[in-house]
Every structure is written in C-alpha cells, then in structure tokens.
C-alpha cells in the first residue's frame, strides 16, 4: 500500500492507501475520490482522469509517452507542464506521499 493525496479544486484533500501495481486513476475510483471521471476505464482513450502532479513529484514519475502527450492536448481543463493522466501513473512504494491536484473539470 502506498499513500497518495488528492487535492480537489476547492483545496479539500483526501488521502488514500492505494494498492501497489494499480494506477492512480483506479485508486481514486476505488476509494471514491470524486473528480477523476475515467470515462474509458484506463484504456488511454479519453483524457478524463487528468491531474496536476505536485512539483516535488513530477521528475519522479515515468516520462510522458507519445500517446499520453497527444491525449493531454485534449484535456478539458488547461494543460500545464505538470499535467498527467492518472491512468498512466503506476502506484509503487517509491511514490509514497505522492500529491496530485484534480482539475475543475474533466469534460
């Protein structure tokens, strides 16, 4: 289990114990964190599990693939340098304490 904190647009935060090997998207859905819609269920089609990764963590994640990069161009909320799709972030012990912010809209 790895601790991940989601911060909502109104600054309310939720911390969950996520299962290693799952994705951050699935951790949000499993623990009832609102704001991660994940219309495509994690198949890298829809860009509705968009998050802003806390600056302290961006360099510790796997780099953005070409597919994810193209999808991020279609996010409903503004794309920023720390934008990621949470379905592409694998939960692992090295990410203990990861903080991601949820944008105000996903579609």
């Amino acid at each position: 289990m790895t601790t991940i904190t989601f911060i909502h647009p109104d600054n309310r935060s939720e911390t969950v114990e996520a299962e290693d090997g799952a994705t951050v998207m699935l951790a949000a859905l499993t623990h009832g964190v609102d704001g991660i819609v994940a219309e495509c269920g994690g198949n890298a089609v829809c860009a509705t599990c968009h998050v802003y990764v806390d600056d302290a963590w961006t360099s510790k994640l796997e780099p953005v693939s070409d597919d994810e990069d193209a999808l991020l161009d279609g996010t409903a909320a503004e794309r920023r340098p720390n934008s990621r799709l949470s379905c592409q972030i694998k939960v692992q012990p090295a990410l203990a304490g990861l903080v991601v912010r949820i944008p105000d809209r996903q579609s």
């Binding site: 859905l29 994940a38 219309e39 495509c40 269920g41 089609v45």
Partner: peptide, 27 residues
C-alpha cells in the same frame, strides 16, 4: 452512478475508438 469500467464500449486494445464522438453526440 460512477459508471467508469462498464464494457458498453468494450475494454482493452479494441475498445471503441470512436467513443469520444459517441459521448460528444450523447452529451
């Protein structure tokens, strides 16, 4: 309902490639 994960558009590598058009029309 939190409906993510339904298989109405399939799942995996063959999941409906036009699902975003469908959702846009439906919305």
């Amino acid at each position: 309902r939190k409906v993510s994960g339904h298989v109405g558009f399939g799942s995996g590598i063959h999941m409906c490639v036009g699902q975003l058009v469908a959702r846009l029309e439906g919305e």
